[in-house]
Design a protein around this nucleic acid. Structure first.
Lengths: 193, 193
DNA sequence: GTCTATATAGAGATAGAC
DNA sequence: GTCTATCTCTATATAGAC
């Protein structure tokens, strides 16, 4: 297998290019929003030609799907880890809130734009499965805290968190110091009611 | 003033036309989303030519602004009325939640699309004032229930309501029978914490 | 495999007849 | 004041040289 190393090097370069394209899309979404996101600009920002972009992705939606997947995989790994500890369920939920805060405030505009664009993307099975794993990680943490709740409660908690954080980010608050407290108040106010 | 009636008739026809254009935009947003909303389609749906549309509105954003204004004016009137009764603050908030539910479920897709598009519209002073009146109506109701809270609490309550209702509408639930209960749980869970 | 050049389509908006 | 016809621009995506 004398060709293996060369092949690997090629694959690695290829992955770097497609990652660059995905990150270019992310940067444009952050600065110009969904309106400003064109395939030509993505290619330019990624430092490749438009022709190359279409060698890596079949169409514009595929670039967005890859970006969304990157974000979800990151989030899922962190949340699964944070929610694992069932000894102190309240602390587990608190850590999940921290992760959500960190994630959305790291790139607030990006998170917001993706949330909107997500609807226009028809997710394939793999993405749907990823979304399910994400939801389940939260469900387990919520169920550990209140075993008498169903999946709806966990979904509501996620919705409430996202909305409060998005709204703060939208208003331009860099990272309001009382936001964590307000999110916790909303989450546990809901769960304890 | 022999010309007054004719003038009024003219103004009335003119208002009917611009209302038709605005409603056409609303219908397209509901069925095709922001992507499908083009000035040509708006004109076609409104039963006027594209040339006429531009006689009534300077550009596409102006049509959207007029639509948003229509929605907000409707909502503001209802909420002001519902929140007025300070004898039973809890009931006042409950009625406001009912109005929000009715409003967003009457045309869920429209409400959702407008929420996104709102950001791309630079509101003029009049629209900003309208938004303030809307916010203040909720603030008064919240303050009557819990006088020790600030405007942030009222804003958070609005954010939580909108998110839960949008999420339900987004999932295609026509009007889940337990949604009102969940929204109330979230709102009062937050306010009583 | 990466580029340049371009086909194709559709957008927003305007001109000018009636 | 409403229409049709069209200008201009910019988008996605492809073709074909290298």
């Amino acid at each position: 297998m004398a060709h293996a190393p060369r092949k690997l090097a090629k694959q690695s370069r290829s992955r770097a290019t497609s990652a660059a394209i995905v990150e270019a899309a992310a940067r444009i979404l952050e600065t110009a929003g969904a309106d400003g996101l064109t395939t030509n600009r993505i290619a330019e920002r990624a430092g490749v030609s438009i022709g190359s972009l279409y060698q890596y992705f079949p169409d514009k939606k595929a670039v967005l799907a890859a970006l969304l997947r990157r974000e979800w995989e990151d989030l899922e790994a962190r949340i699964r880890e944070a929610g694992a500890d069932t000894d102190d369920p309240r602390a587990a939920i608190s850590r999940i809130v921290d992760i959500a805060l960190a994630h959305q405030f790291a790139r607030p505009r990006l998170a917001l734009e993706l949330e909107y664009l997500e609807r226009g993307l028809d997710l394939d099975d793999e993405m749907a499965a990823l979304a399910s794993r994400l939801a389940e990680a939260v469900e387990r943490a919520v169920a550990a805290y209140r075993p008498d709740t169903d999946a709806t409660a966990a979904a509501d908690v996620v919705t409430i968190c996202r909305a409060l954080i998005n709204e703060a980010a939208l208003r331009g608050d860099v990272a309001p110091k009382d936001l964590k407290a307000r999110v916790m108040r909303a989450v546990f106010g809901y769960l304890e009611a």
